[in-house]
Amino acid sequence: MSGAALLEVAVGGIAIGCVYSLLALGYSMIIRASGIIHFAQGEVMMIGSMCGLSALWLAPALHPALVLLAGMAAGGVLAGAMELLVYRTLRRRRVPLMNIITATVGLSILLMNAARLGWGSEPLRYPDLFSGAVEIGQLRISPQLLWIAGTGFAIMIALQLFLSKTRPGLAMQAIAQDPDAAQLIGINLSRSMAGTFAVAGAMAGAAGVMLGSLFFSFFEMGFITGLKAFVAATLGGLGSIGGAMLGGILFGLIETFGAVFVSSAYKDAIGMLLLIAILLVLPQGLAGLRKRGR
């Protein structure tokens, strides 16, 4: 395989990796703040994807950035509402964590079937948001892929800035590290928790628009993608923001290269095998590496 073709595969891997990263970030933020494995994260992504598509149906000339925003808004509102209506109540009633996690699975089934009723059970094609191809010498790279990778990185950088520089972002960091102390210094726990879910949902919504524009939107699309992103988040070390980003991109690359060089039928298995292998060496994921080094 030529170097140019390899690079094309790599760009594809990074683009799909960005989708995983954005979703994995949501898993990590939520598990860090609340301990919940948010299994409905993939469905939030799917709803974001559907809403972005609906926005395009309503206004076919809509700028891609606005499509992305529509998806993010839908994901953010949905995840925030799930926290306010379901998880917060469950936490207040001090039910075991396993029950909350089951509720996320219930919501996941609920959303999937709501989407099937709302948008039908056929895969829906996104209109091409970008056309043509970028040519650098011999290299032809689909603008979709570049768009996805670029936007993905931009959103992740924006999230980092939000978490480290703004008041609400810092409050979210604080409740994740020590909820009791955070409340003592006057941080509103409920609001920050809802904010965490909303931000995680917006990331998922963005991932949904990206993934939809790459392939198509489908009521079941969130399921396997969500799982893979969760694996990516675990790979990076659950609860670690940087780990989630890295884990997602690594997972995307491994999966894409594995599909090309090993077996496309077992493309999902390659990532899982690697995951199990990594966990055996580093039981806390890649983030454990840094702790160990200290």
């Binding site: 379901v86 109540t89 469950l90 039910v95 029950n99 909350i100 089951t102 509720a103 699975v105 219930g106 919501l107 996941s108 089934i109 609920l110 959303l111 999937m112 079937n113």
Partner: peptide, 9 residues
């Protein structure tokens, strides 16, 4: 799905 969520609630 709703029933699962409801039972948990």
């Amino acid at each position: 799905g709703g029933a699962v969520v409801g039972l948990m609630l």
